[in-house]
Design a protein around this nucleic acid. Structure first.
Lengths: 354, 354
DNA sequence: TGTTAGCACTCACAACCATAGAGTGCTAAC
DNA sequence: GTTAGCACTCTATGGTTGTGAGTGCTAACA
C-alpha cells in the first residue's frame, strides 16, 4: 500500500492522538492541533480516502475517526519510528542488576516485573523450556533417623532438593558412599538413559543398601520431570484497570481470569514460533499481533507484543506484553528490546555449561 | 446490648438479605420475603428502634435499611450461627492433600489459593516467622573448576542452596573433608553463635583451605538472613471485581495496588496479635475486623477475617481474607477454620524436629 | 485540478422534566 | 401493642430538547 505524504501525516496524527487520548479524532481537531497547513475540509477528504482503504473507521456517522486493526498494522510495519530508551528507562534497566542467580525463577519474575513497571502493560514471561536435562550431581545428606535429603544439580543451572522418608535411613558414612556410587553412574545422563541394565548394575553395587535405590531413582525422575514443566510468570495485570478500554469490569475480569490460569497464559503466548538460532544465546525478533489477528477470542480487542529467546540453541522461552489495540507500540518495543538485552547479558553471565 | 426476639429476627433478615443482594431492604420486603407474621408497619417501628441503636442505617430518607458496622459487629458477636463445612467444601479440602513438602513456600501458596477458591474472597497468607533459625547441616558439592554449590539445611525444615564462585575450587575429596569440618563446628548453632573465637578455631583447622572459609560463612549468614525474611502469598484478588462495592474501578485499583506491594500486605495483616500457644503447633482464634474498626484507610470499607497460627511455640504466621463489609462471615469463618485444621495437619506431619 | 468555505445533516451527550415505585414516618382506629 | 392508611421523600427511568463535534456534499476559487 502506498500513501502520499499528506495521508501519511494525517494517519500518523490520528494514530498518535488516539494512542494518547483514546478519543475518536475529527478533521477540525487535526487541523488545529497538528499544524499541517491544510484546512479541515481537505483533511476530511483525505480521511475519507483513508477510510476507503480500511486504515481508519468511525463508530457512526458524525463521530471522529479511529484507527482500525489494519491501520495499526500499517503503522507498525511501515511508519513506526524505532525510538531508543529514554534516560529514565535506561537508568532503570541499568540499576536492575541481577547477579549471582542460581535459579531462573527469580530472574524471570524480576524480568516480568521490570517490563510491567516500565511499560504499564501486563506482562507474561515463560521459562526456557529445557527438554533434555541431564544430571550433573546428586548428593545425599542426613537429616535424622527417618529421613535424608536428596539434592539434585542438573545441567541447566538449577538445584532441586527433596526430603526422602525412609524407615531406616543409612548413616553419614554410608550416605557418602552411596552418593559416590550414584554419581559414578548417573552423572551426565538424561532421564531416558537410566535403563533396566544400568539399574541392575547399580542394585548389585548397592548391596545391603539396595532397598533405598529404587525410591531414590523414582524421586530423581520426578524432580527432573517437574523441572521440565515450564513455569510462567506474570506481572502488572492490574494495569489494565487504568485503560478506558477496560472500564467495563466484565472485560477486565476476562483478562484477570486468564492471568490466573496457567493454561490460558500458555495459550496467549501461543505455539512456539521459530526463533532465530545463533551461537549460544539468541533472541528472536519481536513480534506484534494486533486485535483480530489474534487466534484467541480473549485477545480480539487487544494487542500482543512478544519475543522468543533461546539458550544454548535448544531451550526457548517467551516474553510478552498485552495492551489495548491502541497501545504505545514504539515505547513497548524499545523497552522490550532493552529488557531482552538485559536478560541475554544475565543468562550469558550465568552460563556455567561452557 | 439486649434485643427482643422480634428485633433479632428483623436484624437477622436485614443482614442476611443484604449480604446476599447488596441492596437496601425495606419493611415491606421483609414482611413478604421472611414470614415473620407481623405487618410491615410493625416492622417499620422495630426498624426505627434498630436505627436508634445504631445497628442499621439508611442512605437517605425513604431508602431501605442497610446494616451498619456496629450492626455487623453485633451480628458476628452475638447472633452468627457457627456453620459447619458443606459437603462440597469438605470434599475439596480432603482432596487438597499436600504431602511430602519440604518447602513451606508451596504449602503457603496452595493454602492461599484454596481459601480464595472456597470463599471467593482475596486471601493473604504470611509465612511463619522463625527468628531463631539454627543450622542443621551444611554440604559442599562440586560443580566445576570455578564453582561449588553450598546447600544449607536449617531446623525449620527448609533447604537453601547457593552457587559459590571461587577462583580455585577444591576437589571432591577436599570438599567432603571441609563439609565434615563445617558440620562439626556449625551444626546446631544460630547465626549469633558464630563468633570470632569459633572462626579462629575453624581457620586453624582449615589449613591450606582457610581462604574459602570466610566467603562460605558470609554466604551462610546471608542465606539465614534471607530465610528470616517472612514471605507473603496472595490469591484471588480478582474476586473483588465481582462485588458491586467495587464497581467503581478506582476502589478496586486501591486493593489491587495493595496486593502488589509486600509492605502493604504486612500492614493489612497488622501487628502480630498474641496467639494462644499450646504444645507444639497451635492456631489462635479467628479474628474479625469490620469496616471502620480497621486502622488502615484502605480497609475502612472492607472487613478482614484473620487468624494467626504458631509452630513450635515460636514462629507465627498469619492467614487472612478480605471482603466487603457485607461479607458472608459465617461461611468465611467455617472455611478458614477448616483450612487451619488442614494446615495444622500438614505442618504436624512435616515436623522433623521431634 | 486541487483546495477551501459554507451548509445541511447526524449523532452522542448532558440537562431537564415527569412519572412510577419503593420506602418512610405519623396518626388514628382496632 | 398492632395495623391500615395517608402524605411525603427520594431514586430510577424514560422522553424531550439543546449543544457541540463531526461528517459529506457542493460550489467557488487559485
Amino acid at each position: 500500500m502506498l500513501l502520499n505524504d499528506r495521508k501519511l501525516k494525517i494517519l500518523q496524527a490520528i494514530i498518535t492522538d488516539y494512542i494518547e487520548t483514546a478519543e475518536p479524532i475529527g478533521s477540525r481537531t487535526i487541523a488545529k492541533k497538528y499544524g499541517l497547513g491544510i484546512s479541515s475540509a481537505t483533511i476530511r477528504n483525505e480521511m475519507s480516502d483513508l477510510e476507503d482503504l480500511g486504515l481508519i473507521s468511525q463508530l457512526h456517522t458524525s463521530s471522529g475517526r479511529v484507527p482500525s486493526g489494519k491501520g495499526y498494522r500499517f503503522y507498525v510495519d511501515s511508519m513506526m519510528q524505532r525510538r531508543s530508551l529514554t534516560a529514565d528507562e535506561a537508568l532503570f534497566l541499568q540499576r536492575m542488576i541481577i547477579d549471582n542467580i542460581n535459579q531462573t525463577e527469580f530472574m524471570m519474575q524480576e524480568t516480568a516485573k521490570a517490563l510491567a513497571r516500565l511499560t504499564n502493560y501486563p506482562t507474561i514471561v515463560s521459562e526456557p523450556n529445557t527438554k533434555k536435562i541431564t544430571i550433573k550431581h546428586v548428593q545425599l545428606i542426613p537429616l535424622d533417623e527417618k529421613s535424608i535429603l536428596l539434592v539434585l544439580v542438573t545441567d541447566n543451572k538449577t538445584v532441586k532438593n527433596q526430603v526422602v522418608n525412609l524407615n531406616d535411613a543409612p548413616g553419614y558414612e554410608m550416605l557418602t558412599h552411596l552418593t559416590g556410587l550414584l554419581n559414578n553412574h548417573l552423572a551426565g545422563l538424561s532421564i531416558r538413559e537410566i535403563n533396566r541394565e544400568l539399574i541392575d548394575k547399580m542394585l548389585a553395587e548397592f548391596g545391603a543398601q539396595a532397598h533405598v535405590l529404587m525410591p531414590l531413582l523414582g524421586i530423581i525422575a520426578d524432580m527432573i520431570q517437574a523441572e521440565d514443566d515450564v513455569r510462567v510468570f506474570t506481572s502488572g495485570v492490574k494495569n489494565i484497570l487504568a485503560f478506558p478500554e477496560f472500564a467495563d469490569i466484565r472485560k477486565a475480569e476476562i483478562i484477570f481470569q486468564a492471568f490466573e490460569d496457567r493454561e490460558s497464559l500458555f495459550a496467549i503466548l501461543g505455539a512456539p514460533t521459530t526463533a532465530i538460532h545463533s551461537k549460544a544465546v539468541d533472541f528472536g525478533g519481536i513480534q506484534i499481533v494486533i486485535g483480530e489477528e489474534n487466534n484467541l477470542d480473549l485477545l480480539k480487542n487487544c494487542s500482543l507484543i512478544k519475543a522468543n529467546y533461546t539458550i544454548d540453541n535448544q531451550s526457548t522461552g517467551c516474553i510478552a506484553l498485552i495492551g489495548p489495540m491502541r497501545m504505545d507500540y514504539a515505547q513497548a518495543v524499545s523497552v522490550l528490546s532493552g529488557i531482552l538485552q538485559n536478560l541475554q547479558h544475565v543468562i550469558t553471565a550465568l552460563d556455567l555449561s561452557q
